[in-house]
Simulated scan of single mutants.
Amino acid sequence: KDEATTHSNAPSEPTSASSTKGNSSPTTNPQISSKKSKLRKNFASGSCGAKILAHNAEAQNVPSILSSSPDEYMLNPCIAKIWFVIELCESIRILNIEIANFELFSSVPKTFRVSSSDRYPTKDWHRHHLGTFNASFNRTIQSFQTMESTTYVKYVKFELLDFHGHEHYCPLSVVRIHGSNVEEEIMTMEENTNLIDSKSLSDIHDDN
């Protein structure tokens, strides 16, 4: 059976991988720079209540990807079919995803697929496909803009499909998910309305 329950016991680190602190600055993505105000909160953080609901049986220390510690990581042999499901701390419209593997002497994610759902469990992940992404061969946090969606979701499934390198282990250090919830979008709409009203009043005064 592929699915396994989560556990908090960290595995002993393999001799072929040593912990190293990676660069915590996200790579620049001009496509999402205009949305920075909506990307401040990480809705996949354990500190806000996000959880790992399921994962492949071979995976160890999976909750570590929701942690801010650069010295912890999810560990898998690269031959495994690697996947996991995250319950976000709030229902959001997902705009951006970040991942990283900081570990030396290990393979790095190359291609991964992300799907989402507003309910769990579900067999309809394909209905809310957020994208299939290609990551670079580096050990810094990499940022990816998702496909536009009007759906608010709370459950996100990751499938790691391919890796850079040919090492035995394929760790993952961190996953971050950014977006906007209903309250934030209502506030943005109200702010935009106020700006339009202010401009209209200013134009009227100028005409007079």
Rank of each mutant, 00 (worst) to 15 (best):
E3C: 14
E3P: 00
T5A: 14
H7K: 13
S8P: 00
A10I: 11
P14G: 02
P14C: 03
T15Y: 06
S16W: 08
S18Y: 15
S19N: 10
S19G: 07
S25A: 12
P26D: 10
T28S: 13
N29Y: 01
P30G: 06
I32M: 13
S34D: 08
S34V: 00
K35M: 13
K36T: 04
S37P: 01
L39C: 14
R40S: 14
K41A: 08
A44C: 11
A44H: 07
S45V: 02
G46I: 00
K51E: 13
I52T: 00
H55W: 05
H55C: 11
N56F: 11
A57Q: 10
A59L: 12
A59I: 00
V62N: 00
P63K: 04
L66M: 11
L66Y: 03
S67N: 12
S67T: 09
S68I: 08
S68F: 11
S69A: 14
E72G: 03
E72Y: 05
E72T: 15
E72D: 14
E72L: 14
N76W: 02
P77M: 06
P77E: 12
C78G: 07
I79G: 03
A80S: 15
A80N: 10
I82T: 14
W83S: 12
F84P: 01
F84H: 05
F84I: 04
E87T: 03
L88N: 03
S91M: 05
I92P: 04
L95T: 01
I97S: 10
I97C: 11
I99C: 08
I99G: 08
N101R: 07
S107M: 00
S107V: 02
V108N: 06
V108E: 00
P109K: 08
P109V: 02
T111C: 03
F112S: 05
R113Y: 11
S115L: 04
S115Y: 02
S115T: 14
S117L: 04
D118Y: 06
R119K: 13
Y120C: 05
K123A: 08
D124F: 09
D124W: 04
D124I: 01
W125K: 09
H126K: 15
H126G: 06
L130G: 01
G131F: 09
N134P: 02
S136H: 10
F137A: 08
N138F: 02
N138D: 15
I141F: 05
F144H: 09
F144K: 09
Q145N: 04
M147H: 11
E148H: 11
E148P: 02
E148C: 01
E148V: 06
S149A: 08
S149M: 06
T150I: 08
V153N: 03
F158T: 04
E159G: 09
E159Y: 09
L161K: 13
L161R: 12
D162T: 10
F163R: 03
G165M: 07
H166F: 09
E167K: 12
C170H: 06
P171N: 12
L172Q: 06
S173D: 04
V174N: 06
R176Y: 02
I177Y: 12
H178P: 02
S180K: 01
V182Y: 09
V182R: 10
E183S: 10
E183W: 00
E184M: 12
E184N: 09
E184P: 02
I186V: 14
M187K: 14
M187S: 10
T188F: 05
D197M: 13
K199F: 13
K199V: 03
S202R: 13
S202T: 02
D203G: 02
H205Y: 15
D206A: 15
D206H: 12
